[in-house]
Computed example of a mutant assay.
Amino acid sequence: MANLRAGLVGMGMMGRHHARVLGSLEGVDLVGIVDPDGDKFKAAGGRPVYDTVDQLLEQKIDYAMVAVPTVLHEEVGLKLAAAGVHALLEKPLAPSVEAATRLQEAFDAAGLIGGVGHIERYNPAVQQAQKRIEAGELGRILQVNTRRQGPFPGRIADVGVVMDLATHDIDLTQYVTGSTYRRVGAETAFRSGREHEDLVAITGQLTNDVVANHLVNWLTPFKERVSIVLGDEGCFVIDTLTADLTFHRNGTQETEWVDLAQFRGVSEGDSIRYAFPKREPLLVEHENFRDAVLGVGGTVVTFAQGVHTIQVASAVLESSQGHGEIEL
């Protein structure tokens, strides 16, 4: 069977990594790239770099990876849908619920596969946690607590931390709990003189009664990507920077230390850092989308899921403007 013909739209900070992965992906030929600024990162590998999406479509591609700024997602996505081209769009799907919904409707009407690049789903630690939670290893899930903080990335200019970073945590939380948000509340801050918020604290509740809270900022002088999932049996600590998953079990041993025994809650039990294969999340994401296009499986973050994530993020921004908790 002939290889799929793929195109890449956008050769910026993320686009260059997509070019590297697509350029060596088994069963796929990267036949062209679109970026009016050219190959400034020298990542095209000798492949043609076009100025427009129309020029790329002339190459009769089967699917495209879209890594342009969020404000351009709708324009590019709708053009691909009209041409009958499957597409994987970087997250977030679009800058607004309305734009995201239009993309979903266009791809659904054309019978095309649309995926959103929520790459944290493909982190090996997250995938391990999701499988173990689904198997009941934590018992009933009570809370998800995430911290995603670090210095400001100069490449981000069109959105704030809610759309750029918090959407990772919103999607990750829904993925590992198998649920969706019922309501959210939030506070934001603008501390660095930019147009968009650079700090947010989010609280929420999911439809399965799990309580969630997310701390996200672009103001911390170190990088942290930690998610703690608490259940009846203990908790998982997911570090997506190191792809480590650690299980802290609730203690079951009685203690003879009288002062300590007066505490009637859970106590510290065994701790296990699991060993498992660790493959590059971006490669796994592309493998899954390729397989979905081929119709041989592949787990894709659908446009419908991407729309819901933006609905939650939009509710977070609305709440932060003094509107209290927002029901979804």
Rank of each mutant, 00 (worst) to 15 (best):
G114V: 10
V211D: 07
E90H: 13
S267A: 11
A81G: 06
F276I: 05
N213R: 10
I202P: 05
R249I: 00
G12C: 09
V97L: 06
D198M: 10
G251H: 07
V68H: 02
Q174S: 10
T252Q: 08
A201F: 13
T246A: 14
L142N: 06
A125V: 07
G27C: 07
P281F: 02
A87H: 03
R147Q: 15
R191A: 11
D37R: 14
G297I: 12
T52H: 10
G114K: 02
E256V: 12
T70S: 08
V301T: 11
T167N: 06
A304R: 11
A313P: 03
N3E: 11
A43S: 14
E254W: 12
T240Y: 03
N123M: 14
V161C: 15
L328T: 03
V176N: 01
V76I: 12
Q127E: 12
H17Q: 14
S227F: 04
R290I: 07
R121P: 01
Q262S: 14
T203M: 09
L283I: 06
D158K: 03
L199P: 00
G111V: 13
E285M: 14
D54E: 12
E74M: 08
A157T: 14
Q174L: 00
N123Y: 11
Q321T: 14
H323D: 03
D239E: 10
E224G: 04
I119G: 00
L8F: 07
Q262H: 14
V307Y: 12
S179R: 06
G185S: 10
G178P: 05
F263Q: 02
V126F: 10
A275L: 11
E195A: 10
G231H: 04
K40L: 13
R20S: 15
L294C: 03
T242P: 03
R102P: 06
G136C: 08
T177Q: 01
